[in-house]
């Protein structure tokens, strides 16, 4: 009986997951290969055949490739600084964590109010006399501005989650290793590179996986700032599901997002693998 106890205790949570996660997942997977009550790959060919698919796919990849490294660098820097603080550490963490409490749609709207034609940025530019009249920043002729605005909003919104994970991870590294590095002649950078980073791998894994998956699911910010100018995988999923009423194709998109997420998760786990015996 005592050997079974842990499993028994896990049962409710497992049942919950099966019901509300596994079941819908199987449903979506099923939908993606189902058309007119027959098994087929047509949903996928329709998806891939549409002219917007590859744009959406590469936009998503590009956004992730730009946003995640920036966030990683910023989160690492901020976490190193916060970890060194003697006092006021929790207040600063709270302040940094404020954007986390804002939904991604709200974040998109906040940045829209900065970039739109009557927004802060235009008022500022006009006020400074840089331009004569407000310019259309988020128009279809300059999608790169939309791209930058999305990157800014994403960085602003979701860097803190990485930072919080990394601060916790750095807190777990015993102080003595940093001291040994100091004594044995490591400069600040060497200490970070040769001691902190390798010992932070488990937290880096968590933070990166979380962020990369969320980056592939970027949606509300993109829609708020770019409308349909900058299609991404999620906005296309939404489009097929609700505007086109093509449930099967939307499911195919969902499967693509899932596949990409799983592939990157495995890649991150491999890259940041800690050999057995080398754990703290």
């Amino acid at each position: 009986m005592p050997r079974m106890l842990p499993y028994l205790l896990l049962l409710p949570a497992t049942a919950f997951l099966c019901l509300f996660f596994l079941y819908p997942f199987v449903q979506v997977a099923h939908d993606s290969v189902m058309r007119n009550a027959a098994y087929t790959l047509e949903n996928f060919t329709r998806m891939a055949g549409h002219w917007k698919f590859s744009t959406a796919f590469w936009n998503t990849m590009l956004l992730a490739a730009v946003v995640v490294p920036i966030q990683l660098a910023m989160a690492l820097t901020m976490a190193s600084i916060v970890t060194k603080l003697q006092r006021g550490r929790s207040s600063i963490l709270y302040i940094f964590a404020i954007p986390l409490g804002i939904s991604d749609l709200a974040a998109g709207l906040i940045w829209l109010s900065v970039f739109e034609q009557s927004g802060f940025l235009n008022s500022l530019l006009v006020g400074l006399g840089v331009v004569d009249q407000p310019i259309l920043l988020l128009g279809y002729q300059n999608t790169w501005v939309i791209f930058i605005a999305i990157v800014l909003a994403e960085v602003w919104r979701a860097t803190a989650i990485m930072m919080v994970i990394l601060v916790a991870g750095m807190g777990l590294i015993p102080k003595e290793y940093g001291e040994a590095a100091d004594v044995f002649g490591a400069s600040r950078w060497q200490k970070f590179r040769r001691v902190t980073l390798p010992m932070l791998k488990p937290s880096l894994q968590t933070a990166l996986i979380l962020r990369v998956i969320l980056a592939f699911e970027v949606f509300a910010v993109v829609v708020a700032l770019g409308g349909t100018q900058l299609p991404v995988l999620m906005s296309e999923t939404y489009h097929w599901q609700f505007q086109m009423q093509e449930r099967g194709v939307a499911a195919a998109f969902a499967m693509v997002i899932l596949a990409v997420s799983v592939a990157f998760t495995i890649l991150i786990l491999r890259l940041l693998h800690v050999p057995k015996g080398a754990r703290v």
Binding site: A180, P198, M199, V274
Partner: peptide, 14 residues
């Protein structure tokens, strides 16, 4: 200087 720490501080990742 070089030092031998009382709690060793041998790096676990190396």
């Amino acid at each position: 200087i070089a030092m031998v720490f009382q709690n060793y501080a041998v790096f676990p990742h190396l």
